[in-house]
Design a protein around this nucleic acid. Structure first.
Lengths: 257, 257
DNA sequence: CGGTTACTTGATGCGTGTCAATGTTAGTGG
DNA sequence: CCACTAACATTGACACGCATCAAGTAACCG
């Protein structure tokens, strides 16, 4: 990995200052013992340039990461230079958590913007879960939500038009951004080129471009300068056939629009 | 659920006779204590007719199941009667394991043949994992493999032709059947209509039919009487772009053909 | 300011969907 | 044992969504 390490940050004194702890503790009630275990987890915080592979398919990482800031995606390369983007990842996500139990990466992980991630060694995850079994449940749950999102993407990409697929991705990201408090009303960061959006929904650049033009023309949504602005949320939801239940958001994070 | 209950089978004396225990114990070494916990797990074994929904999207099950025999699939219904089949499930799979941590089903689960499944209440899974933490890891791992398969299907369905997609499904099932010892050389049970195969790979019945005709014409594979016969395994792998690593099979289960 | 990358638009063709009709097979009841 | 039925499989004709090719424009950057 060719990114630059900035800090060995092992020294958060409080729960509020430790980003991983903040993220995980929001899911469940923990005992003092468990919180202590969480807070003593060694994190390595790393700054990553845009368009950089954190992991490449076939690798066998010994650590997993939490996204602190930025925007990442998973992808697979196929024959003839084709690429499928499998998911987008926002702050709070753990896009390679599965490497803890599945040693070989079956896809790659890449930053789309400059990002900050916190690495945790598998070894310390192991130790953490011995001290705080409830945390294992929280992590397991988050990998199950991840799978649920994959199922929804499969259904979209398999059985919907490009217009619906693109609208759906844009809906999902608004809801997810809101759930982590990083949406500005109905506007959010979207550092995804039309090529990449095409690789996510299984469409060509040209077609993505035309669909976006149509969505703009219908007054539903615009993308400009790396930001999505949702102009007509009910309309966008409608054309996407979007229902957020598959995100399995917890009470506090849910936003119905 | 309108299936018929046949046995409350709580009385397997040995590891070999308890199907869930046999399945799970193959993944890892367990202590005597852990095996005891596993063997004392209450199972409810149920026979299910073909084409019966075990679970419908939106339900909140209090139990999960292990497939003992038969063939199941997960699916989602979309607007206008469209359907996406998300995965196929063979004996040994736990297709609704995630309901343990995600209360609301985000898809449905359906039998394609008469099947036998063993239900385990979430409560007893909970108790089991307290007594045998290593089992939590095994179950978590299996849900991660499940997600890996979903990722592979996404890449197929998103970025490959119908011919490749169909060939890929057929390759995957051969390898999975072999890994559980239920393939007859290069022939296996495939109780999937062309409509259903279309719903799995995102194609119309008509097109599925033509593709199958082509695959047959090229001497790669035939489907007849509910069985797939792979005639040219290297050729089928080649046209599918199939690489089994995404199945994350363990040493003993791997079959390279 | 030339080079690079992303976006945009038009023309054309292929892969696949849709519609419609027919063949095939397995099950059902007389 | 044979009409009758209901799925499922198969095939042809035609249309449409989307890919591909090509070319031009806009924005960015050292």
């Amino acid at each position: 990995m060719d990114f630059q390490e900035s800090t060995i940050a092992n020294d958060f004194e409080t729960r509020e200052k430790n980003p991983l702890a903040r993220r995980l503790a929001s899911h469940s009630e923990f005992s003092e013992e468990e919180l202590q275990a969480l807070l003593s987890l060694p994190l390595k915080i790393v700054a990553i340039d845009a368009d950089t592979d954190l992991l490449v398919e076939g690798e066998r990482p010994t650590q997993s990461c939490v996204v602190l800031s930025g925007f990442l995606c998973r992808y697979k390369l196929l024959e003839a230079g084709k690429r499928q983007i499998l998911s987008f990842h926002l702050p709070g996500d753990m896009p390679d958590l599965h490497s803890f139990h599945l040693p070989r990466m079956d896809h790659s992980l890449c930053s789309l913007t400059p990002s900050q991630v916190a690495f945790v060694s598998h070894q310390s995850i192991d130790r953490l879960m011995e001290r705080a079994p409830k945390l294992a449940a929280v992590l397991w749950r988050s990998s199950l939500v991840d799978a649920s999102v994959l199922r929804q993407w499969m259904a979209n990409n398999g059985r919907r038009t490009a217009r619906q697929r693109i609208a759906h991705v844009l809906c999902e990201l608004l809801v997810r951004y809101r759930s982590i408090g990083l949406a500005q009303d109905r506007r959010y960061r979207f550092p995804v080129t039309q090529i990449e959006l095409g690789d996510a929904v299984g469409a060509s650049v040209v077609h993505v471009n035309r669909v976006l033009k149509d969505l703009r023309g219908d007054g539903l949504v615009t993308i400009a300068a790396g930001y999505v602005s949702v102009l007509d949320w009910p309309g966008l939801k409608e054309t996407a056939g979007f229902d957020p239940s598959y995100l399995h958001l917890l009470k506090g994070d849910t936003w119905v629009g």
